[in-house]
Design a protein around this nucleic acid. Structure first.
Lengths: 242, 242
DNA sequence: TCCATGTCAAGAGCAGTGCTCTCGTTTTTG
DNA sequence: CAAAAACGAGAGCACTGCTCTTGACATGGA
């Protein structure tokens, strides 16, 4: 059914894709704030007003790019995860963390688009939440499998406050019914940690301290694995960095 | 010597301040991307070109706002720290962390200005690094004092890689000659963690999980204190949240 | 086959932006 | 007191997102 669309529909789909591609190209050069509909149209040999048939507003184009970015990052994380044996939690976690950073470094402006300050006057529509959750779910999946396999080491920590316990319980219901709130809380900490480091690195906050930050990131990733209780490498598993 | 300046100099200083104030006001409403020189001028009863005598470019105005924001945040952190007894490391850490979050929540757009994605086409000049370091130094100070007092609990962790060891050694030279690289690395992790959480909260990434995130933040702050080895509360010290 | 319908790109135009340059006026300085 | 420097006003340039209208074209039903 994809091939048998009317000529107009095919043309429309193709132009939509071309617009996004060109916009992404400009995004990579100038950043989101400088994305100009007119420039995109110019580059495509169109007149600016023509673009409005495809994206009714600049924000709609941005939204499309945001969704694509979330999807690309999520796909990268999932692929890295899937490439590792299911019963190697730390290896999977390491792979996902590395994939996320690699993607971020390769697409800094797209990263900034989704994890940086919200674009001025732009309100993220509901359509973005599902793709946004993909990366997070990949991370959760690793810990979830470890938990199910009984491979997650216990980490002593004080009880959660009632509010936090309820929040995490509600969250667990949605994404990981088997995980206890304590583990989920640690997971949230680790999750924010990863993107905290990446944002600092990409936004230049680390310049003058640990820059380049490959090793710092790798080190922190291991400490985070410890923190959530992922078992250390087995003696036979391929170790991480030298 | 401040009072005896020429009338022109006083007028200039005052107008410069007024421009920044008005810009900050607009920032709080619309965000950095929408900051308009013309609008600021309009509000001040000036013609737009007149502003260029005070800030040669829009980016220069932004830079001034950025420096002010860093300074305000740094001052808030320092004040919170100073209000606690020097020999209560965890209390100080808790106070600093809370002050940072309070400031961020009270000035979300200014926070986004300094910790969000860099403004399009904007390159942070060198003048910003000193004010930017203030918050970080406040955090470091807490741990440093604890270390000097022998109050920092040891945390077992694998040796740092050579590169990371060298990076942290160099960093220690600058800001905390007494701290070992292992501690400084943990500090860096904690530092990025704090702002990772705040960015996620402010940029709407936490919506649907732990939002509002007061309790999550407070909980994480304690876990981070544990992580760097800050001693737990004494029996007599005023405990944190209920 | 023909024709009404809906879709399309183009073009002009509006209000807004950052920024530059010039021109009188005012203040400071030598 | 005169030369010099600093100032605000105004016009203007190139750009932006966006709207509205116009004429050409493909599509599907009679």
């Amino acid at each position: 059914m994809n091939a048998s669309r009317t000529a107009r529909e095919r043309a429309r789909a193709e132009l939509t894709r071309e617009i996004k591609d060109e916009a992404r190209r400009q995004l990579a050069v100038d950043g989101a704030g400088r994305l100009s509909l007119r420039a995109v149209a110019r580059e495509l040999g169109l007149v600016s007003s023509a673009l409005y048939r495809y994206f009714p507003t600049r924000d709609d184009l941005l939204t499309a790019l945001i969704i694509d970015a979330y999807d690309a990052l999520g796909a990268a994380a999932e692929a890295a995860d899937a490439a590792r044996p299911r019963d190697d939690p730390r290896g999977r976690w390491r792979a996902v963390a590395a994939a996320v950073r690699d993607w971020a470094l390769a697409h800094p402006h797209e990263y900034a688009l989704i994890y940086g300050s919200p674009v001025p006057g732009y309100q993220a529509p509901q359509d973005t939440v599902a793709p946004a959750a993909r990366v997070a779910l990949a991370i959760v999946g690793v810990v979830r499998d470890a938990w199910s396999a009984g491979a997650l080491e216990a980490r002593p920590s004080p009880a959660l406050s009632p509010v936090l316990a309820e929040q995490t319980a509600k969250l667990a219901e949605l994404i990981a019914p088997d995980l206890p709130g304590e583990v989920l809380t640690r997971l949230l900490i680790v999750w924010t940690q990863v993107f905290g480091m990446l944002s600092f690195e990409l936004f230049g906050q680390l310049v003058g301290s640990v820059d380049p930050s490959d090793e710092f990131y790798a080190h922190a990733v291991e400490r985070m694995a410890d923190f959530v209780g992922l078992p250390p490498d087995g003696p036979d598993s391929t170790k991480g960095p030298a």
